[in-house]
Write a protein that binds this DNA or RNA. Structure first.
Lengths: 160, 160
DNA sequence: TATTGTTATACTCTATAACTATA
DNA sequence: TATAGTTATAGAGTATAACAATA
């Protein structure tokens, strides 16, 4: 039998058992902590991780189709539609329907979009450096290498 | 200037730039993939990661206060209230108000809750092993070790 | 006064399906 | 028929605040 919870044993001393060996569980907890650091760093700014990554990728790939963007960033098309609408309404992104395929929507940054990216780019990179709390540089590099193997399976590996 | 998106270069060949070195971005993509594997494995069953981890921890810590559970699993109290309500309505969890602190709610599994846990425990552990797609055993172990350092900062380390 | 849990609201993101307009 | 994007709906999860009961 499992020992009943003992409040006298100290605050929140809970047995997690094999849960601490669960990759999905660890990923979730790690992400919760890293995102909390992100939101703390960008409190008071309009920067949110999803939107900023979208602006980032449009900047590097001007004219990228909206659906391609959704696949690469693992954002559902229905959600991407609303996300892009917000960015267009904010004046950061321009949509264009190419003559060659009038179903498609190609995205580019406006001047304001580039300015927004430039304004927060350094802070965005800095927070990811600061995020490495408790890890050495070598550990952080190894962690990102291993996460990349999960994040980019062979069929979804980005071009270098 | 950045090269415009070239659809002829192959499907979804998008330049992500420094985003591939962003810990938060990699964590999100890795989690999306790992969770997709989880939901694929448990399609057709009522098993969801959040609820199952709650049942798991209650089983190991019978009588654990609801608030402690929320802190340890990084689930917001308002959400935990609704999550536990679902589990109580499903007959898997019992709530008890201890005489010593009548504000508190202590949680235990019902017989049906233990049966539910037993029924899916092996599959839950197996999916986490299968999740290690593309990683060797050593890499998976190292990844979980590094994630644990992020997930459990010194002030939130679980008892062994 | 502080803490435990609840309720309520709003928002983000996901899942799904139905729909349009093109191809 | 298939594809690109849109709209709509439902749900999970989060953030926040206000609240009641109790300590």
């Amino acid at each position: 039998m499992n020992a009943p919870f003992d409040p006298a044993a100290g605050t929140d001393r809970v047995d997690l058992g094999a849960l601490t060996g669960s990759l999905g569980f660890l990923l979730r907890l790690a992400q919760v902590r890293i995102y909390a650091q992100f939101f703390a760093a960008f409190a008071g700014t309009p920067v949110r991780p999803g939107e900023f990554s979208v602006l980032w990728v449009i900047d590097l790939n001007p004219g990228v189709p909206q659906g391609t963007l959704a696949r690469v960033l693992a954002i559902k098309p229905a959600h991407m539609t609303k996300l892009v609408q917000r960015l267009v309404e904010a004046g950061l992104v321009a949509r264009e329907t190419p003559a060659t395929d009038r179903r498609a929507v190609h995205l580019t940054l406006t001047a304001a979009g580039r300015a927004h990216l430039d304004r927060y780019r350094d802070a965005f990179l800095a927070v990811h450096a600061a995020e490495r709390t408790g890890l050495s540089e070598a550990e952080a590099d190894e962690l990102m290498r291993l996460l990349s193997k999960l994040a980019f399976p062979p069929e979804a590996r980005p071009c270098p």
